[in-house]
Simulated scan of single mutants.
Amino acid sequence: MSPVEHLITSGTFSLDGGTWEVDNNVWIVGDDREVLVIDPAHDAEAIAAQVGDRRVTAIVCTHAHDDHVNQAPALSERFGAPVLLNPDEAQLWKLTHPDRRPDGELAAGQTLTVAGIDLHVLPTPGHSPGSTCLHVPELGIVFTGDTLFQGGPGATGRSYSSFDTIIDSISRTLLALPGETTVHTGHGGSTTIAAEAPHLEEWIARGH
């Protein structure tokens, strides 16, 4: 069994009075005994079916836009697993779950371990104030949520986002990773650090 499993779920994203149809990547990391779920979007039943009878050690949200966290409390209750989120996402989280707080925080320097696999927490604000990536050096992978996609940075045109901040996060934190690192994103296809790095100046010019 691969240590990384991928599920695509479909639903909507709502913010600033607008709603859009979206397909989200849900990532499951672990082995045949225990797993960690990244960005539990839209379809709790499909995610639970993929997990099966394995123990869930944590439900990790890269950020708190509703399409990334809408099933977090339901899965937390179902599996008895804590929801982990960067505390700088509190305002966005409350828009979706006003009566339920996350169970734990994600912070710089923290390491989450599941099935002997270490995921290093990398705060990468910009798409949202507490957007966070998870780097798995031994697998040569980084989970970037909506910070970095195939083709460029995540959107920064809505509330709580900043183009200058996301560019700084990508250039300082993500482009510092080995070029061969596979980038598993929150939406769409995967890419590599090496494939995206040459385009930084283009993104900056386009963003301004």
Rank of each mutant, 00 (worst) to 15 (best):
S169C: 12
I193P: 02
T156D: 06
T132D: 08
P129R: 01
A176G: 15
G140C: 03
Y160E: 04
R172H: 11
T192V: 01
Y160S: 00
R158L: 14
A195T: 10
H135M: 08
S161L: 13
S131K: 10
I170A: 07
F143H: 10
A176W: 13
T192N: 01
G145E: 10
G145I: 09
I141E: 09
I170P: 04
G154Q: 07
V183T: 02
P137H: 04
R158H: 13
I141V: 00
T144S: 00
H135Q: 09
A155M: 13
G152D: 05
S169A: 13
G145K: 11
T182D: 02
A195V: 06
L148P: 00
V136D: 05
A195N: 06
T181N: 01
S162V: 07
I170W: 13
F143I: 14
P129A: 05
G152K: 03
L177M: 08
V142A: 00
P137T: 04
V142D: 03
E138V: 11
S171Q: 15
S159W: 11
R158C: 06
T191E: 05
F149L: 07
I170M: 10
T173D: 10
G130D: 11
V142W: 04
A176R: 12
H135N: 10
F143L: 15
A155H: 14
C133H: 05
G130A: 14
T144P: 02
T173A: 06
G189M: 13
L177W: 09
I166S: 04
G152A: 04
I170Q: 09
E180L: 05
T185L: 03
V142I: 01
G189W: 14
G145N: 10
F149W: 11
T144G: 03
H184I: 04
T182P: 03
S128H: 10
G188D: 12
A195C: 00
E196N: 07
C133L: 01
P137S: 01
H184K: 11
G151Q: 11
F143W: 09
G186E: 06
A194Q: 07
T165N: 05
T182R: 08
T156S: 09
T156I: 12
F163E: 12
T165D: 11
I166L: 10
G130K: 15
